[in-house]
Structures are given as structure tokens and as C-alpha cells.
């Protein structure tokens, strides 16, 4: 199939960017979206032009590196799918595809489709951990975690930290990302002790880093390639209320 791409090109963090148009020809439907972009880049390089810079690494949907808004949807909008797992069979010959970077004040564009997501790191550093030392911990079975609790924690822990929730949120809020960690650690006995401090420090960091506030649009849940549910934001809200009393 042949496709027309409109890709956001931006030379550097301070440069002004714009959408540029490229043709992707002879695209096989078994290719992944990134492989299609690889091909476009090969052509650009051969023509002596700067290839499109985009983030990617594992290409199996787990590292969270890839980050593109495709036709207005983070990761292309296919359910539980990252860009790297998006395959060309979900497009049709002649399609026009708009490819843009994550956009948020907290995610400044560094080049083309690459955004700086270090603000997510700061949120994690604010409390996304249990303060245990290496060694000197009890046996793994010393604290029992019944399966439903372990499953709940795992559902939250599946977050890959890609930032799609922010990119999809009308407020550019990172509340889903924050809540996933808060909820995971709040239900586990290992994390309960610090739950009150954690929910405050992490949500404060979220605001300090320039993310917006959550106003319950739930776009994040749809954007999330791991299907993290907004029930974790409800859990965060609950934890917050608990932290006040």
C-alpha cells in the first residue's frame, strides 16, 4: 500500500516546528508502524536529508520508549497497543496519516517526534518506592498477599511510563501514571506504611513539574497502551482523603 504521511519536524527544542509531508510507498501490511517509518527514513538518508527522529527501543511494547500521536490518538488509538506494536494492516492504501509528538508543557519537544519526559522521573522520585534497604528484609512469604490483592497491584504495575496518558489528556495531567504507582503500593503490605506521605508527595510533584490537574475526562484510560484503568485514580483520591485524616 501507499500512504501519505504528515510528520511533525522540529530541528531542536527551541526551533519552530511544522508538519511536513512524505510518501511511504510499497508498505507491506505485515510491517509494524515503526518499520514503515524506518523505510521512509532510509529514503530520506539516501536523498541526503535528515531522517525523522523518533523514540523507540524494545519494539515489543514494554519499554515505553515509543511515543507518537497518530491521527490524533496517542499510540494510534488501537486498544492496548503501543506504536511499535501497531501494524500496517490496520491502515488502508491511500490513507493520510498525521504523526505528531507528545504535546504537553511538561514534555518539551527535543527533536521531531522526541519529547523530554524527565518530568515523569521526578514524580517517581517523589515517592514511587518502598523505603527498604538492600538485604535485611523478611522472607518473601512472611507477608501474605492474597491473589486478588496481588492481581490488583499487578494491574496497576503494568504501567510502562510512556506518557500516553499525558499526551491524551485534555489537561496534560499525569494523574493516571501517578495513580498506578500510588495504588500498587497502597494495597501491598510492603507499601502501606508510607502510603500517606506517598500520595501527597507524588501528586505535589505532578503539579510542580507542570502537569495539569485531573478533571475526570478519562481520555487517559483510552490512550493507555496497557489499559490502566481510571479506577486507580479513584483509589488515589481515596488514598488522598485517607491521608488527610
Amino acid at each position: 500500500m501507499n500512504l501519505t504521511l504528515h510528520v511533525w519536524r522540529q530541528k531542536g527544542p527551541k526551533a519552530k516546528g511544522k508538519l511536513e509531508t512524505y510518501q511511504a510507498t510499497n508498505v507491506s501490511e505485515d510491517e509494524s508502524f515503526l518499520e514503515m517509518l524506518d523505510e521512509v527514513n532510509e529514503e530520506l538518508i539516501k536523498a541526503g536529508k535528515d531522517p525523522i527522529a523518533f523514540d523507540h527501543d524494545c519494539r515489543e511494547g514494554i519499554c515505553g520508549m515509543c511515543s507518537q500521536v497518530i491521527n490524533g490518538k496517542p499510540h494510534g488509538g488501537q486498544e492496548r497497543t503501543t506504536v511499535c506494536q501497531l501494524h500496517m494492516r490496520s491502515f488502508a492504501d491511500g490513507d493520510e496519516i498525521f504523526i505528531e509528538p507528545w504535546r504537553a508543557k511538561a514534555f518539551p519537544v527535543q527533536k521531531d517526534l522526541i519529547a523530554d519526559r524527565s518530568t515523569l522521573e521526578t514524580i517517581m522520585q517523589a515517592g514511587g518506592f518502598t523505603s527498604c534497604h538492600t538485604g535485611g528484609v523478611p522472607d518473601g512469604n512472611a507477608l501474605l498477599v492474597p491473589k486478588p490483592v496481588a492481581d490488583y497491584a499487578m494491574d496497576a504495575a503494568e504501567c510502562i511510563g510512556c506518557g500516553a496518558c499525558v499526551a491524551g489528556c485534555p489537561n496534560s495531567s499525569a494523574m493516571l501514571y501517578t495513580s498506578a504507582k500510588v495504588a500498587q503500593l497502597a494495597v501491598l503490605p510492603q507499601g502501606k506504611g508510607e502510603a500517606k506521605a506517598r500520595v501527597k508527595s507524588m501528586t505535589d510533584a505532578l503539579l510542580d513539574e507542570g502537569f495539569g490537574n485531573c478533571t475526570n475526562h478519562y481520555e487517559c484510560q483510552d490512550a493507555c497502551p496497557k489499559g490502566i484503568n481510571v479506577k486507580f485514580i479513584a483509589k488515589l483520591n481515596r488514598e488522598y482523603i485517607k491521608s488527610l485524616v
Partner: peptide, 22 residues
């Protein structure tokens, strides 16, 4: 605050979950 947090808009915007009301 929220509009300050999302200063730039996408060329194409597709919302699936939110509503006009929201």
C-alpha cells in the same frame, strides 16, 4: 492551570472518552 499545562494543540485531535459536557 490546565490550559497552561497543555499550551500546544495537535493538528488532529481525536477524543474518544470525554464528552462535550466535560
Amino acid at each position: 492551570e490546565n490550559s497552561a499545562a497543555s499550551p500546544e494543540t495537535y493538528a488532529i485531535k481525536q477524543r474518544t472518552k470525554t464528552t462535550f459536557a466535560a
